[in-house]
Design a protein around this nucleic acid. Structure first.
Lengths: 150, 150
DNA sequence: TTGATTGCAAATTGTTTGCACGCAA
DNA sequence: TTGCGTGCAAACAATTTGCAATCAA
């Protein structure tokens, strides 16, 4: 496995930019940010580093709802909340509940190691404008309650 | 939006095959099953129907960890558990807790509509063989606790 | 009859990889 | 000096889409 990561400028700037954010950007968003400081960096390098950094525990890779992966500069157990309106993802300051794992273990034959939870709803910026647009958005909401959306 | 879905043989067979399973197949797995009965069906049709069916609430689209979407023939609130060993996904018979949404709402500015939860661990088939293989698997587990894996 | 649905193939999107060169240790 | 890391471009995998033909209502 990975021995030790070298400190390259690309790696450092990726970590720095990610550390500045409280949001959970996609690989491409990180690429755009880093590119302002290192114009010659490639998207492939960003992907490779995000993967390595999350493997070594320095950042967190989120692969919950939605098609794109997102990355989290802060590690540790916490839940996430995604805005149905604009797609942004925030941390939820609800501490992860280990007892849930035990409750789940009692109900299944699995050896349970972790759980993750994601909430969906409208962020402050999207609550008002959305609800004014009517019909179509209502359907979107229903879609999200019943099934899942994108 | 969708008025009413016509009953085509493709649609019906997709629903039937999905209804037979307790697992949560990927679009491609469904395609392979349906193809046995309708050899000329195309993968695109399967994708289009899974999307429409989940929008109309007849099935459920799962987009949690991992890169591929999976589909669930049974609707209603329940959680899922994914095997780290073989990737299979089962239902967990733990009823969805609405109170969690309220607890989360108190902690954020979001208007919260739903939450979903996924558990990770080893299924009965993977517990023993996995733990015997040692080292590499241990790293995999750590990876899953700290960050996330694939 | 007519618009929803299909099969097919091409296009998109997000991500990964091979390779030769460059640079941290 | 070594072999990890990089930029670049091509390859991939999953999913979506345009289009003309087909079929359910």
């Amino acid at each position: 496995m990975t021995e030790h990561l070298r400190e390259t400028s690309q790696r450092r700037v990726i970590l720095e930019e990610l550390g500045k954010l409280t949001s959970h950007p996609t690989a491409n968003e990180i690429y755009e940010l880093v590119r302002k400081r290192l114009p010659r960096i490639s998207l492939g390098t960003v992907y490779r580093n995000l993967e390595l950094l999350s493997q070594s525990g320095l950042i967190q890779k989120l692969e919950m709802a939605g098609t794109q992966k997102r990355f989290d500069g802060t590690i540790g157990n916490h839940y996430h909340i995604r805005c149905i309106g604009c797609g942004r993802v925030d941390d939820l300051r609800l501490p992860a509940m280990k007892s849930i794992d035990e409750a789940a273990a009692d109900l299944s034959d699995y050896e349970i190691l972790w759980h993750k939870m994601e909430f969906g709803g409208f962020c402050p910026d999207c609550i008002t404008p959305r609800s004014k647009r009517g019909e179509i958005e209502i359907l979107d909401i229903k879609k999200n309650i019943i099934g899942r959306k994108d």
